[in-house]
Design a protein around this nucleic acid. Structure first.
Lengths: 345, 345
DNA sequence: CTGAAAGCGCTTACAG
DNA sequence: CTGAAAGCGCTTACAG
């Protein structure tokens, strides 16, 4: 592969001049520029990004450590992150933690070793020493979706509180009184917050959230299934199951279907995170939609700000309730077309 | 950040010795090794992968250029690719082409500039000069899922022919005679092959595939919707719509739902690519499932073989039909649990 | 405007 | 077993 030396030789100039042309440095004569460009074309020369990075101490690369790529919410988030990063001149390397702290650490370490310019993370747990050290050491970093309290890092996320209140109002209005939740891991902020928001919203109607109605899930489908089976085995099963993410809702649907229980006649189902398929499930599922695309873009902007030495603020965007038929009753309003929905990402 | 010089100074040895310890070179005294390791620990030293790559001309990185990350099939593929790569000591950088040749080229170029050790690609089109040049120039490369004929690059893919025959047999057995397909782009191998396989399978029953029953899609949901609307507007609409990927099936479902048409009573629907949600759609969707996880792993193994100078063969794995209710009739057999399904990836 | 030279952080023959 | 030195491919003060 041709190097800058070859180009210099071909153009009859020094490598410094070639470098200047390549980097649009102003002080290059028009003639030298033309010769260099011609040589670049003739040799099919492409600058070696590795060498450039070593020299400039910039890789123009962002790391994104995500909890689970197979979760459509995170896939959409990753996509919008990549788009915004590309627009700002960065590439992104995605590390899939699969909800495993050890894998998360593997990726953080790998990304740091590769000298990424900044790190976007949606932590799987309360934060490993490695990640906390990186933050303390001044690695530009931004939390997205989930975060770690007490760490001085901007947080870009959705606030689901008001949407959860809307959901509970909807459920209460339909006459439901025994509401259960499939919670995410208590080690994650979203795992805790969604339960708390649900409990608070219930409180406003004088309803309790008994321990038997809090099933411990891990944001994966299998846990949603297991927890739902437990709910169905209760002497007094809940009238509603609220899954704290879309994969656990999938598992809940599996469990319900295996038992021959009907939704919403026998049990109502709602989910946090909306996905295109929820329009077409049997029945269509009432869900809380996050502004995923906007979150990804805001997170990248905050991270790039930090990289460039600017402040980079936290951003909180509201989630919203999308009513469908899985909790009973007809939708209050016309459903937006699901294809249109996709454009939100 | 501490460099190898700092470690050498701290340990009282040369940087060469530090490097040897770090790379498990045998000729290092136990004592020197211990001192270096202690210094590494004390300084929290991590080797700079950028510098190492420049020197060794190896990045231990694979590039994966994928047609569309939001497509669950490709998400699953990307995940298995990353897993296998990690097991073999490689990281992977994913480039999402979004079915756009220009974006595909952007990513290929970017990956090449970063000097990835090898490239895995599922081409969006017939192949840009850039990609063909890279292959010709000897960049280790493997095609996965889709490929470009006439290029000397191993291909790892699923063969859907027999599954498509099974599908047509199933449809014919249910009495359907007017079968239509939502095709993928003719510029892609999978786009062409699925239509051909369908046409051949129909031929075995003396059925034709008239042009009016071939809708041109682009593997995205919106095109599935548009094509399906066209089918429904026909004087003699088809009895079956077979979508060549899962996203176009989603679009078809949108269109059918918007018209108030019932599946399978008014029209049957089947899809290429199976996803967990197909178990829970209304009705559950008959689909052709690819061994996605195995494809991803095989592709990585073939690529790494090429990188290491070994042959690296092409692999073709069979896809299989999963019958559900969207074409009429009850499933022939018990549906495997969808959570179990996921483990295939 | 241009070039020679230093240096980014590593690895690896080479000599001892 | 160990170290001095060269070199990977760039960029960038510095001097002219």
């Amino acid at each position: 592969m041709a190097s800058i030396k070859d180009v210099a030789a071909e153009a009859g100039v020094s490598v410094a001049t070639v470098s200047r042309v390549l980097n649009d440095h102003p002080s290059v004569s028009a003639e030298a520029r033309a010769r260099v460009l011609a040589a670049v074309g003739a040799l099919g020369y492409r600058p070696n990004a590795v060498a450039r990075s070593l020299r400039t101490e910039k890789t123009q690369t962002l790391g994104l450590v995500i909890s689970d790529v197979l979760n459509p919410y995170f896939t959409a988030l990753a996509r919008s992150v990549e788009e915004e990063a590309r627009a700002l001149g960065y590439s992104v390397i995605i590390g899939n933690a699969d909800e495993r702290p050890d894998l998360q650490d593997h990726h953080v370490r790998n990304l740091l070793d590769r000298r990424i310019d900044g790190l976007l993370v949606s932590p799987t747990d309360g934060g490993s020493p490695l990640m906390l050290d990186a933050a303390r050491a001044g690695t530009p970093m931004v939390f997205v979706d989930r975060w770690i309290p007490g760490v001085d890092v901007p947080v870009v996320r959705a606030d689901g509180r008001s949407a959860v209140r809307d959901l509970v109002a909807h459920l209460h209005g339909l006459g439901h009184r025994r509401l259960a939740i499939i919670a995410g891991p208590a080690a994650t902020t979203t795992g805790r917050e969604r339960v708390e928001a649900f409990r608070e919203a219930l409180g406003a109607y004088g309803l309790e959230l008994p321990d038997a109605y809090i099933g411990q899930g891990d944001f994966q489908a299998e846990s949603g299934r297991r927890v739902t089976e437990g709910f169905l085995d209760l002497a007094e099963p809940p009238e509603v199951v609220f899954a704290a993410d879309n994969l656990m809702a999938l598992g809940a649907l599996d469990a319900v279907r295996a038992r021959g229980v009907r939704v919403p006649e026998d049990i109502a189902l709602a989910a946090f995170d909306d996905i295109p398929w929820f329009v077409h499930t049997d029945p269509p599922i009432t869900a809380i939609a996050q502004p995923t695309g906007e979150l990804g873009r805001a997170a990248v902007r905050a991270l790039v700000a930090r990289i460039e030495g600017r402040p980079g603020e936290s951003v909180t965007l509201p989630a919203r309730l999308v009513v469908r038929r899985s909790c009973g009753e007809q939708p209050d309003s016309l459903e937006p077309s699901p294809v249109t929905n996709r454009s939100q990402t």
